[in-house]
Simulated assay, not measured.
Amino acid sequence: MLLARLFRCLSLSLALVIAMLTPVPAAASATPEQQLREAAARGNAKQVSALLAQGATIDARDAQGRTALLLATHHNRVQAARVLIDAGADVNAQDAIHDSPYLYAGARGYNEILRLTLANGADLRSTNRYGGTALIPAAERGHVETVRTLIAAGVAVNHVNKLKWTALLEAIILGNGGPAHTEIVRLLVKAGADVNLADGDGVTPLQHARQRGYARIEQILFAADAR
C-alpha cells in the first residue's frame, strides 16, 4: 500500500516536471488592427478609441476587405461607427463584394450610421455589386426613412442598375405593395422618378403595378402620367 502510494506520488512529480520542461506554443496575438475590427464589430466604442490612440491603422482591412467601420456598420454599432468616422475612417471603403459603410447602411436602413456617412463624404454615385446606388436596395426593402434621407441627400432617383431596374422598379417588382412600398413610390415620383422608364424587357412601372394588383401604387403612377 505504501509502495503504491509512493509510486503514485513519484509519477505525479515526474509528470509535473515534464509539463514544466515542455515548451508551450505561444498564442498567436491579434494585431492592433485585428483588435480594432473586433472591437468595432462588438460595438466597444471605448476600446475602439483606445486602439486608435495607440496607433492602430484605422482603415486596415481583413481577408474580405472589410474595415473596422464596415464591420461596425454590419452590426449597426452606432457609437463605435461614430468614433471611427470622427477619427477619419473612410465611409466609402468597399470590401471584396463592393459593400461600403455608406452603401451597407443605406441598404439595411441603418439610418443613424447612414446620416453619419452622408455628413462625412459619402459618395452618392458609388454603386454596389449589382451596379445600384444605396437608394435602390433601400427602396426594394421598404426603408421609407432611408429613401427619404437619400433623396434629400441628392442620390439620383433614375439610376439604372445591372438588372436594368431603377429604385422605382425595384420598389414595385420586389416590394409587397404595402404601405411602406407605396409611400416609397410616392416619394420617388415626387422626387422626379421617370414613371415611364421601363425595365430591360420593356415593361413599365405601371404595367408591373397592374400585373401585381397594386392598386394604390397604380393610382400614384397614373396620376403622374405613367403609361
Rank of each mutant, 00 (worst) to 15 (best):
R8H: 04
P25N: 05
V24M: 09
L14R: 15
A30G: 01
P32R: 03
I18V: 15
E33C: 10
P25I: 04
R37M: 12
S13P: 01
P25F: 09
M20G: 00
M20E: 07
A28P: 00
A15N: 03
P23F: 07
S11D: 04
A19P: 00
T31M: 01
A27Q: 05
E33S: 11
L14N: 12
R37T: 13
R5Y: 13
T22I: 07
A19I: 09
M20L: 08
S13T: 14
S11Q: 05
A26R: 06
A15L: 02
A27S: 00
Q34C: 10
A15W: 01
A28L: 00
A27V: 08
V24H: 06
S11W: 05
Q34E: 15
Q35G: 09
R37Q: 11
M20D: 03
S29D: 02
Q34V: 14
A27T: 00
L36G: 08
L12K: 03
Q35W: 01
Q35D: 11
L36E: 04
A28Y: 03
E33D: 10
L36I: 12
A27Y: 01
A28T: 08
P32E: 07
S29I: 03
V17A: 15
A30T: 08
I18H: 07
C9E: 13
S13A: 13
P23Q: 06
L21H: 01
V17R: 15
R37W: 13
A26K: 02
M20Y: 06
Q35N: 03
A27L: 08
P32W: 03
C9F: 11
P32N: 02
P32H: 02
M20I: 00
A27P: 12
A27M: 04
A28S: 04
V17W: 13
T22C: 06
L16S: 07
L14E: 12
T31Y: 03
L14G: 12
V17G: 10
I18T: 11
S29K: 02
S11H: 06
A28E: 06
L16N: 06
P32T: 09
A30Y: 01
A27K: 02
A30M: 06
R37N: 12
S11T: 12
S11F: 08
I18R: 08
S11L: 05
L14C: 15
A30P: 01
F7A: 15
R5E: 15
A15D: 01
R5N: 12
L21P: 00
L16R: 09
R5I: 14
L16C: 03
A28G: 07
A26H: 04
L14H: 14
L10H: 09
Q34W: 08
E33G: 09
